[in-house]
Design a protein around this nucleic acid. Structure first.
Lengths: 281, 281
DNA sequence: CCCGGTTACGCTTGTCGTAAAGATT
DNA sequence: AATCTTTACGACAAGCGTAACCGGG
């Protein structure tokens, strides 16, 4: 189970082609074929059907493992390299769209910081693998509970803010004038699934009316205000949206929480910024 | 970052000896030396000091990554192999000491099951790496929240029971006759840290009076009753203990929860048993 | 001087690429 | 027939072991 073999395996599965994976990885088709054969021999199982190229059940299982595995591997290498690398003055911070609240943004120093907006699910990986020096993620959690993040690497997680939740409704929605809502009230409603922007409780993800793949908050709010579906937002954000109506969510007791992520061995510049950000909350 | 190199690295670090690791892994000292040299060259950093052999800061960082990484690797291999392996009728279940409640034990079939008692932290790994076909873990969580388990592999987690918490005190403890306790009341108390048996909230782990490394519940209760420190237990268990006094914990709102763990591809016998166990709750 | 880690060197093994063959649409 | 995977084979590099070397207690 050499990581190289795993890497070619996921490439082949993703591209559904041996030759495509070979091109992407800089191998010959022959080498890719040998990689897959080696894996299959090692695991005593067919991992891919050929023609068409698709993962078998065993291959699907392996794929589920391979992603996190390769991620952790990159994270480990990046983490150790970060210790040795000469620390540059610049810091790049991975932020999910809703994680950058006004207080946090105000605490940023005038220079030397680069912000990279990513989907929440990508932020931990970006920090772990060294693409970014710090991360700000947001998500749903029980009050004063830390966020449940995939543990791609031993990251330092620090709470950086909590807010209530509100549902963003079109202005003419029957519930638009309610003082508060329970999630049960909206059991039959259609939600917009926007994994790149807004958090969604498990119960909501069942049958999204619309899927928005971007990371633009305003676009999402416009969609919601136009009646394409409901969106769950932190109250402060929902209240500031011009269009539509924001109604606080009373049940279940969930909060919108944002966390600061730092790698195990942050650069001096990164830990200075982290201290500044946590002090400002 | 070949896993083989990582494996030798953790062995060398654990044994604090190149030659020792060589013996353990079936290599020559020379090969081990080359492994470490290769890793250090790859990561551009000294990982170990020689004479005495001890990890450098960079080595410590790598060690933190290496464990979970190698675990996941084993888990992946085991998970795929499980699909191919002929499913034997026997099922072995990893259980943490407090996870096996009477209802669950009653639901076990008469034959074909092996129970293996492990520390809670070891159960997910045992299931993931294929040592066991199912797992029952217990731990602390907010009410109706799933347990926070290390994600060594994509395991199926099913709730299998919740109970309140109680503190086990010596019978002559000043609080022994109270109807309920808050954790704050016990801020200055000394606790027994028993990671192999009883869960402990983060706040408690600060300065344990005693550390109990075994997995024997009765031994732990005897220690607590004898005044060596306090222990947190599920109420049903604490109430059934002969010695000492069990006082329910009212704050914070935590519960003792047990979860059933199944690998991504359980054997037929394992999933049959899992169905039986979940039906019985 | 001994114990233990490093370095040198030869051998085996594995891995990749070229090229031919086989299979599928 | 064209495209894509597999197989055969030769070249090269990597990895391990033996053995000599070196540095600290």
């Amino acid at each position: 189970m050499d990581p190289h073999l795993l890497r070619t395996f996921v490439a082949v599965a993703r591209l559904a082609s041996f030759s495509g994976a070979a091109r992407e990885l800089g191998y010959t088709q022959s080498a890719v074929s040998q990689h897959i054969a080696a894996l299959e021999g090692d695991l005593c199982a067919e991992l891919l059907t050929r023609r068409p190229v698709a993962p078998t059940p065993a291959g699907v299982r392996l794929l589920e493992h391979a992603g996190p595995l390769l991620l952790r591997l990159d994270a480990a290498r990046a983490d150790v390299l970060r210790l040795a690398a000469a620390p540059p003055g610049r810091v790049t911070v991975a932020v999910s769209p809703l994680a950058a609240g006004p207080r946090l943004l105000a605490a940023l120093p005038a220079t030397g910081v680069t912000l990279r907006v990513l989907a929440p699910a990508e932020v931990p990986a970006a920090v772990a693998t060294g693409g970014c020096d710090l991360g700000l993620v947001d998500g749903l959690a029980a009050p004063s509970d830390p966020l449940r993040l995939p543990d791609v690497a031993p990251l330092t997680v620090t709470g950086a803010g909590e807010d209530g939740l509100a549902v963003l409704l079109p202005a003419d929605h029957p519930f638009a004038r309610r003082a508060s809502l329970r999630l049960d009230d909206l059991a039959d409603a259609r939600w917009i699934d926007a994994p790149g922007v807004a958090p969604a409780p498990a119960a909501v993800r069942t049958a999204p009316a619309l899927r928005y793949a971007g990371t633009d908050l305003h676009a999402l709010c416009a969609l919601a205000a136009a009646g394409h579906g409901l969106v769950l937002l932190p109250r402060r954000v929902a209240g500031a949206v011009g269009a539509g109506a924001a109604v606080p969510l009373s049940e279940p007791r969930l909060v919108h929480r944002t966390e600061l992520l730092a790698p195990g061995a942050p650069t001096p510049a990164a830990s200075a910024l982290a201290a500044r950000l946590t002090a400002s909350r």
